[in-house]
Amino acid sequence: MSVLPESNLALEVRGVTKRFDTRGIRIPLPWSKKKGDDKQVVAVDDLSLTVERGQIFGIVGSNGCGKSTLVRIISTLLYPDGGTISVFGHDVVEESETVRRLINRVSVEASFFRKLSPLENLMFSGQTYGLDRETTAARTFEILGRLGIDEAQVLRPLEQMSRGMQQKVAVARGFLTSPIVLPLDEPTTGLDPASKRQVQKFIAELHAEHDATVLLVTHDMAEAEKLCDQISIMAGGKIVASGTLSGLVEQAGLEGGRHGLEDVFLHVVGHAFDEEPEDKKAGAAASDQ
């Protein structure tokens, strides 16, 4: 039976909240602090959004606004404290295994066994998604080739590659399993301008070739403008504005001249990019690592 219904809604987030307790496991000792003294930070605060099938949906926000926490909940790596998230109608908590078959993720850290080669790392990844060895190897060479990594480099340990090259391998791992929903969490952070363009082009091409829905989380305004059909601005764990770029400019009431996403962000959020207030930044420690 197909796990992919004829739904046009790829992702539905309803009233999701996530808090982190900054202390570890507590043993109730007489001198322990009372429950009310718990230090909790709210990373995602009653957030709702919907992403339609086939869209490249952007979420922009400063560091610590809860973007990565949201991606981790969608990716079944965190349980929400409240609300629900479904991927093509499958709940990320109740139907976690089904959801994991539909998605893959690229995060800001490359995250590999560094002593192993890109091929060895991707062979592992592909086989855990049910791909056979031949298909995994063929796709690995094909995708990495399109990203400018030659065959010799594919066989060399990842620790010998630059940070940018490793990030390209991470992008390749995300696309290797042909996910139909792909959260990309800062996929081009740390890349040089040429590599950044290469990855962006690759994302756009693969999105056009496959029936994939991309959730692009970034604080690169130009990248969001370039790639995304719809953009949501996130601040303090909430979505504070949402729409197409022109729609956002209109919502913000900006007049005169050519306004970009950064202008909208500054207008809507009220502080410069990367200047999330300190109390919210506490949440970053728990969410954006």
Partner: peptide, 14 residues
């Protein structure tokens, strides 16, 4: 330590 734990737990296996 390798940093791969989240990717391992995202794999659609039991």
């Amino acid at each position: 330590w390798e940093g791969t734990i989240e990717y391992t737990f995202m794999a659609p296996i039991k």
